[in-house]
């Protein structure tokens, strides 16, 4: 039984990608501006938000990361389709 790639799946994935990109940009910015508290606060906000969105995604569609960084309740979903290039 593979997951349904419905509208909700893609909007959730899109949100996760947008948050991840912001986190990447803020990480690079904070590397050179470690004392910028506004950016640091924004970074922590987005990190918190990312945790929620990832948790929501993994509860519905399976693990995002491997080696224990994502739960895999019920069955070993890691090798089941869809693979990233099939999404």
């Amino acid at each position: 039984m593979s997951i349904q790639l419905d509208e909700a799946y893609y909007t959730l994935l899109h949100e996760l990608q947008a948050i991840d990109f912001v986190l990447v940009e803020l990480t690079l910015y904070l590397d050179t501006h470690p004392h910028d508290d506004a950016a640091l606060q924004q970074f922590n906000q987005f990190a918190e938000l990312r945790k929620k969105v990832a948790h929501h995604y993994e509860a519905n569609y399976g693990p995002l990361l491997q080696f224990g960084r994502s739960p895999s309740p019920g069955s070993w979903k890691w090798s089941e389709p869809p693979w990233p290039w099939q999404v």
């Binding site: 947008a18 990109f21 912001v22 940009e25 803020l26 910015y29 050179t32 506004a38």
Partner: peptide, 22 residues
């Protein structure tokens, strides 16, 4: 040269589409 703090940002979705946050 050195990026000033508090630059205007795009929204997350725009940033993802446009390729930069700033």
């Amino acid at each position: 040269t050195f990026q000033p703090p508090n630059w205007p940002q795009f929204s997350p979705y725009d940033a993802l589409r446009l390729g930069t946050l700033w």
